[in-house]
Design a protein around this nucleic acid. Structure first.
Lengths: 212, 212
DNA sequence: TAGATTGTTAATCGATTAACAATC
DNA sequence: TAGATTGTTAATCGATTAACAATC
């Protein structure tokens, strides 16, 4: 049993490879060498080969990589050969934007329901998805076999919601609240900290101005 | 002239320090040691001291760090002592969510206008911000001295919009479109690739299931 | 002063890049 | 077969952690 732990640095790069391979595939490109891909993606060819070899050899000496095959394989590594069932907690603008973003649906990420404390939203539909009151959360998750909960609620409510979700046996939380969630190791968390991202941009603006 | 280049790894951690120091400050905590902060933030005390020392010594031997002072200083490093003027390109749900998120305003990130190709949105207001037709982009940026453009438009339109923005002399682009933008070095780009984030989460779900 | 904790140097670890033998 | 390019090992680089002298 080969149990080599893939570093998060590699995993973070996988979706980007997947994206570029999708573009190449759409352009009808049949094969590509690590050198050529490195030029397009602005990384080293060495890194590309090292990254891919974490998952076994996808290429062929003297030929390169078959774009379609590599695209499919990376898709499988990312779990895109399976469907995922999602709910959104917080049916505001951000939650609505995510629900309506069709690219997720096309990749097998299916929104099944939304939850909001605002009674005026409950019973309504957003992008074809119904909004439920929070009380129904636990039953809904179990009945619809929800894998992923998307948190677009205020940071004050996020940890409490996460605790409830953990108890339902959810697999993962995609967290947009501006806090670091504490969950047990069997629950995966991926946080999108928009404010952190904006502050980083702010830093880089002022660094550039200082240096020039 | 000390020109030590701060690594992006450090910069990425700064907003998180800032966040935790803000919480401590709000809790009335006056001083904190690297050891205590390391426990709260789940990083090593060594890393905290190394990170802070990139910017000069903020602490005092035998005492630790003054929370309020450190908070203020990191805020300045992040450019939060200055105001920023923003526009949003794409007044859909995501753009609206960002405009309405008050935390940005409180930190000096002021949305001045939104732009959308949809005529039915033009002239309307979102969170008190008016929506303009794209033709007015260049004049608006110059007249309102816009620093940062937020791109929440389809990926097909993103590079074209970026090119136009670069010509206006904008300082930075906060990119939510699912492409890597090409801009000259004087323009800072920070991308939030939501799909990449979700795919990473998907990978981690399936990795956990494989390993357990 | 003694104790605590920083600032900083040195050691370690991990990730990236370079090099090249294997092989298509 | 010769040329191209991978897979993989070795070298390098950078980031993290450990250690400790400086000093409050």
């Amino acid at each position: 049993m080969e149990e080599r732990e893939i570093s998060q640095a590699v995993i973070t790069r996988l979706p980007r490879y997947f994206r570029y391979l999708g573009l190449l595939k759409a352009d009808g490109v049949e094969r590509i060498s690590s050198r050529e891909l490195s030029r397009i993606m602005n990384v080293t060819a060495s890194q590309i080969r090292q990254d891919f070899n974490n998952f076994g050899g996808f290429g062929q000496q003297g030929y390169g990589y078959n774009v379609e095959y590599l695209y499919e394989e990376i898709g499988k590594i990312l779990g895109l050969d399976k469907q995922h069932h999602l709910i959104v907690l917080g049916a505001g603008n951000l939650g609505s934007a995510l629900i309506k973003y069709m690219m997720f649906k096309n990749r097998g990420f299916l929104f099944e329901g939304a939850f909001d404390t605002d009674p005026s939203l409950q019973g309504k539909e957003i992008g074809g998805i119904r909004v439920y009151p929070p009380e129904e959360l636990e039953n809904f998750v179990r009945e619809h076999e929800i894998d992923i909960a998307v948190l677009t609620i205020p940071k004050e409510e996020a940890q409490g919601a996460a605790d409830r979700l953990v108890k339902t046996g959810i697999k993962a939380i995609w967290n947009f609240a501006h806090v670091d969630l504490k969950v047990p190791p069997q629950v995966q968390v991926e946080s999108v900290h928009l404010q952190d991202s904006l502050l980083k941009l702010s830093y880089n603006i002022h660094r550039y101005e200082r240096e020039n």
